[in-house]
Measured scan of single mutants.
Amino acid sequence: EEWMVEKALMVRTGLGARQIESYRQGAWIEGVHFKRVSPSGESTLRGTTWYNYPEINKFIR
């Protein structure tokens, strides 16, 4: 699984929702560690946020 939603990321990493938000707003790079995608497939600020687990795992190492 490369891309996953927040709940799956929480299960895989043990991070809480606030921790994920903090990383997203600070250290993680949009387009690398996470992306927002609307149902139409376009990038957007209001779409579902998807997280790239392999890239996040590399960051944590």
Rank of each mutant, 00 (worst) to 15 (best):
I20K: 00
S40G: 12
R46V: 14
M10P: 01
R18D: 15
P39D: 14
V37A: 09
V11W: 10
S22E: 15
V32T: 06
R18C: 13
G41P: 10
H33P: 00
V11K: 13
K35A: 06
G41H: 09
A27L: 10
W50I: 13
V11R: 12
E55G: 02
Q25R: 11
H33Q: 03
V32C: 05
L45R: 08
E30D: 07
W3S: 01
R36D: 12
G14A: 04
Y51R: 00
K7T: 13
V32K: 08
I29A: 05
L45W: 06
P54G: 08
G41N: 09
R24Q: 09
W3M: 01
T44Q: 11
K7H: 12
E6L: 15
P54F: 12
G14M: 04
L15I: 04
V5F: 07
K35L: 09
E1W: 09
W50D: 02
E6N: 03
S22A: 14
K35M: 10
V5S: 15
M10K: 05
T44Y: 10
G31Q: 04
Q19T: 06
G41F: 07
K58R: 09
S40L: 12
A8W: 09
G41L: 07
P54K: 09
E55S: 05
G41S: 10
E1H: 08
V32E: 04
S22N: 13
E1Y: 09
W50M: 13
N52C: 05
T49A: 05
R46F: 14
E2N: 07
N52G: 01
G47C: 10
R61V: 13
T13P: 01
V5T: 15
A17D: 05
K58G: 05
F34Y: 13
F34K: 02
S38D: 13
T49M: 14
W50S: 04
I29S: 05
E21G: 05
Y51Q: 00
E42A: 08
R18S: 13
G31M: 04
A27W: 09
W28D: 00
Y51F: 05
K7S: 15
R46G: 15
L15V: 03
S22W: 14
W3C: 02
H33L: 02
A27K: 07
K35P: 01
I29V: 11
A17F: 07
A8V: 12
E42C: 08
L15Y: 03
F59Q: 04
M10Y: 03
M10V: 06
V32G: 01
T13H: 02
R12K: 12
T13S: 05
W3D: 01
K7I: 09
W3E: 00
F59R: 03
K7F: 09
R18M: 11
G41R: 07
E2Y: 08
S22T: 11
I56F: 02
V32A: 03
G16W: 05
T44K: 11
M4H: 02
Y51V: 00
K58T: 06
W28T: 00
R24M: 15
T48Q: 12
E21V: 06
R24L: 14
V32L: 09
N57E: 15
A8R: 07
K7P: 06
E30Q: 05
I29G: 02
E55P: 04
R61D: 10
M10A: 06
T49S: 04
V37K: 06
K58V: 06
L9E: 00
W50K: 04
F59Y: 07
G16N: 15
P54C: 11
E6A: 10
V37W: 07
S43R: 07
L9H: 00
E30M: 04
R36Y: 15
A17L: 09
T13A: 04
P39C: 11
E55Y: 03
I20N: 01
R36S: 14
L45H: 12
K35W: 05
N52E: 02
Q19P: 02
G41T: 09
L45C: 11
E30N: 05
Y23A: 04
S38R: 08
N52L: 02
Y51S: 01
E21S: 07
M4V: 13
I60V: 06
G47A: 13
S38Q: 12
W3F: 02
R46Y: 13
G26T: 14
W28K: 00
P39I: 13
R18V: 11
R61K: 14
V5E: 15
F34L: 02
R12H: 10
S40I: 12
R36M: 14
I20L: 07
Y23W: 08
G26I: 08
A17Q: 11
K58H: 07
G47Q: 11
N57L: 15
F34T: 02
R18W: 13
V5C: 12
S22Q: 14
E6M: 14
T48L: 12
Y23G: 03
E1M: 08
V37M: 10
H33G: 00
K58D: 08
P54T: 15
I20Q: 00
P39H: 11
I29Y: 04
E55A: 10
S40Y: 09
E6C: 11
Q19M: 08
Q19K: 05
T48N: 07
S38W: 12
V37N: 07
S43K: 08
S38N: 11
E2Q: 08
L15Q: 01
Y51P: 00
T13Q: 02
Q25D: 12
N52V: 02
A17C: 07
F34C: 02
V11S: 10
Y23L: 10
R46P: 15
T44P: 12
I60R: 03
A27M: 09
W3V: 00
R12Y: 08
M10H: 04
I56H: 00
L45V: 12
T13G: 02
V5A: 09
G26A: 09
F59G: 03
G41M: 08
F34A: 01
R61L: 14
V11C: 14
Q25F: 07
R18I: 10
E30K: 04
A8D: 15
V11D: 14
I60T: 04
G16R: 10
Q25M: 13
R24E: 09
S43M: 09
V37F: 08
Y23T: 01
Y23D: 02
I60Y: 04
G41V: 08
E55F: 03
K58N: 10
V32W: 05
N57F: 13
L15M: 07
T49C: 08
V5M: 15
S38P: 14
I29K: 09
T44I: 09
Y51M: 00
F34G: 01
R12M: 11
I29T: 10
W3L: 01
N52P: 01
I20F: 03
Y51L: 01
E30P: 06
E6Y: 06
R24G: 03
S43Q: 10
E21D: 07
T13V: 04
N52T: 01
R46L: 15
V37D: 12
T48E: 15
P39T: 11
S40V: 12
A17I: 11
R36Q: 15
F34W: 14
V5P: 13
A17T: 08
E30S: 04
T49P: 04
R36P: 06
H33E: 02
V32Q: 06
Y53T: 02
M4D: 01
K7D: 14
G16A: 11
M4I: 15
F59H: 05
E42I: 07
I29C: 05
A17R: 13
G47P: 13
N52H: 06
G14P: 02
Y53E: 04
I20P: 01
T13E: 02
P39M: 12
L9G: 00
E21M: 08
R46N: 15
P54W: 09
G14Q: 05
Y51W: 03
A27Y: 11
T48I: 13
I29E: 07
G31K: 03
L15P: 00
R36H: 15
T13R: 00
G14E: 04
R36C: 15
L15D: 00
E1T: 09
W28R: 00
Y51K: 00
T49G: 03
K58E: 10
W28I: 00
A8M: 13
G31D: 06
N57V: 15
E1C: 11
A17S: 11
T49Y: 15
P39W: 09
S40D: 14
R18T: 11
R12L: 14
P54N: 11
W3G: 01
L9Y: 02
G14T: 03
W50E: 05
G26V: 08
T13I: 05
K58Q: 08
L9S: 01
P54R: 09
R12D: 02
T13N: 01
W28N: 00
E30I: 05
T44C: 09
E2F: 08
G26L: 10
Q19V: 06
Y23C: 08
R18Y: 09
N57I: 15
Q25T: 12
P54H: 11
L15E: 01
T49R: 04
V32Y: 05
G14S: 05
G47L: 09
T44W: 10
E2L: 08
Q25Y: 07
N57Q: 15
A8N: 09
